[in-house]
Nucleic acid binder design. Structure first.
Length: 478
RNA sequence: GGCGCUAUCGUCUAACGGUUAGGACAGAGCCCUCUCAAGGCUUAAAUACGGGUUCGAUUCCCGUUAGCGCUACCA
């Protein structure tokens, strides 16, 4: 049974790339009857924030995918320290008493590649122990083999066979001088202890993996299977960053923007992965059934947002597809809070009647507020009376159509068939086209030209509001 | 700078040596139609560049270029 983990560090809100990593892990776990583990990698106490942790849970809860086990790295530092000790005892690590370089930029980059601090590796064990016992701060570094150059290898499930020479791997830190484990150490210690079988994570960790392989080797354990995911990047090719791209990369922006969680999931899955059978719209279960490492790409994927629109057009289209295929009761549930938070006084029963009329007319749940507003308000917002005048018609025609409609509508039952035939008959009597008859009425009751089909709209609106609004329109034209 | 990874329409992608290089979104046009949508049809649009290997390269190899990643006592 595979055991996979999603291991975010709480240093910013949950962004779309992290969410996709979670989703791919989740899919793999569900596909293979495995265990999904959520582990908070919070060993960098200075940078962790509660707000960030909240944001991770908020995003994950919205996605509604869940996990089977939960851990916090900060509660497991003893394990990491013991692991460090094991490596030190084996002589595969050493204490480096060189003072920390406060500014990373100070490290010479253009000169020879930095591999280790001079003198530190050669320190005798006795002196190292003595200085440590005396309380002198040190950083514990992995002793990467230097006498014999060899390749460190692993086989990535996505990127294939990988290898890097030890001559190109620096003596990376395991323990900081404040005794806290580094990401590399804590991550490997936990992955080993939690018996993680597959590490599915962003490609930005691909080169880190060589260090991790070295740690697993030192521990004498078989490394997990690695599967690295191509990165999600901005339209200009740059890395998605919270700082540069702002809220467009946050999962909650999609939630608040009116996405359905399964649609969001569908979209991010299609970024860097393909079912290879031209499928686009897929349900959660279909994604689970289709998921495999073979379908994962190796090149980065652009998520196509812009200044005017924070959402990729394909994401919006997919969301519309999911909305169209949602059962009406469920869609009403989803729509109601958006209508209410837009300030409309609407209950579930009424929402449920409006829902079928807007289902194929909205792409985002938020659009309920702009597409169905006239159903919810008591009085229509002011509109241009010229809108009431039909195609190839004039004010007189509009007035005639409205008055005729009013007469008809005050008598017949508000039911689709009756409305249809009566209004069409009225148009014939006036010797105008049906469209010329319908448009003034539509604008009168909706306040605009573009709206759902007229008869269904009238049914939902009811006789009183309809007649009232027609009267109002007649008044505007006179 | 060093090391690693990547490279098919504007974007997401399919084609695991032989296809008129396919699909989707976005764009354009037509049809349907009470408007708007939805739907149907049509259209434009790509193998970064240069060398090999091969009867034959989008596909395999090398180089160039470009992009990204790592190169922290961040993760």
């Amino acid at each position: 049974m595979p055991r996979v983990r999603f291991a975010p560090s709480p240093t910013g809100y949950l962004h779309i790339g992290s969410a996709r990593t979670f989703i791919f892990n989740w899919l793999y776990a569900r596909r293979n009857s495995g265990t999904m583990i959520l582990r908070i990698d919070d060993t960098d106490v200075e940078r962790n924030t509660q707000a960030s942790l909240d944001s991770i849970f908020e995003g994950l809860n919205w996605l509604d995918l869940g996990w089977d086990e939960f851990y916090r790295q900060s509660e497991r530092v003893d394990l990491a320290r013991a692991t460090a000790q094991t490596i030190l005892d084996k002589g595969l690590a050493y204490r480096d008493f060189t003072p920390a370089v406060t500014d990373a930029e100070d490290k010479p980059r253009d000169a020879a590649t930095w591999l280790f601090n001079p003198g530190a590796r050669e320190l005798s064990l006795e002196e190292s122990d003595r200085r440590a016992a005396a309380g002198e701060p040190f950083v514990l570094r992995y002793r990467v083999p230097r006498d014999t150059v060899r390749g460190v290898r692993f086989n990535d499930a996505v990127y294939g066979p990988q290898s890097k020479s030890t001559a190109d791997i620096e003596d990376f830190a395991l323990l900081r001088s404040n005794r806290m484990p580094t990401y590399h150490l804590a991550s490997c210690a936990d992955d080993s202890d939690l018996r993680i079988s597959h590490i599915i994570r962003g490609q930005d960790h691909l080169t880190n993996t060589f260090k991790h392989v070295l740690i697993f080797e030192a521990l004498g354990v078989e490394p997990p299977q690695f599967a690295h995911l191509p990165l999600l990047i901005a339209p200009d090719g740059s890395k998605l960053s919270k700082r540069k791209h702002g809220p467009v990369v946050s999962v909650t922006t999609y939630r608040d923007g009116g996405f359905l969680p399964p649609a969001f999931m569908n979209f991010v899955c299609l970024l860097g992965w393909s079912p290879k059978n031209d499928r686009e719209e897929m349900s959660r279960q279909e994604l689970v059934d289709a998921f495999s490492f073979e379908g994962i790409n190796r090149s980065n994927a652009v998520i196509n947002f812009s200044d005017d629109d924070p959402f990729d057009p394909k994401a919006v289209w997919l969301n519309a597809e999911h909305i169209r295929h949602l059962p009406l009761d469920e869609l009403s549930n989803q729509l109601l809070p958006f209508a209410q938070s837009a300030g409309f006084d609407v209950d579930w029963g009424y929402m449920r009647r409006v829902t079928p009329l807007i289902q194929e007319r909205i792409r985002l749940l938020t659009e309920v507020a702009t597409v169905a507003d006239f159903f919810f308000v008591e009085h229509l917002a002011p509109y241009d009376p010229a809108e009431l005048i039909p195609q190839k018609g004039d004010r007189e025609m509009a007035l005639a159509a409205l008055k005729k409609s009013r007469a008809i509508l005050s008598e017949i039952p508000f039911e689709h068939q009756a409305l249809d035939s009566a209004l069409r008959a009225g148009a014939a009597e006036l010797k105008v086209k049906p469209g010329q008859m319908f448009q003034p009425v539509r604008v009168a009751v909706c306040g605009r030209k573009n709206a759902p089909p007229l008869f269904e709209t009238l049914e939902v609106l009811g006789r009183n509001k309809t007649l009232e609004r027609i009267d109002q329109a007649v008044g505007m034209l006179q």
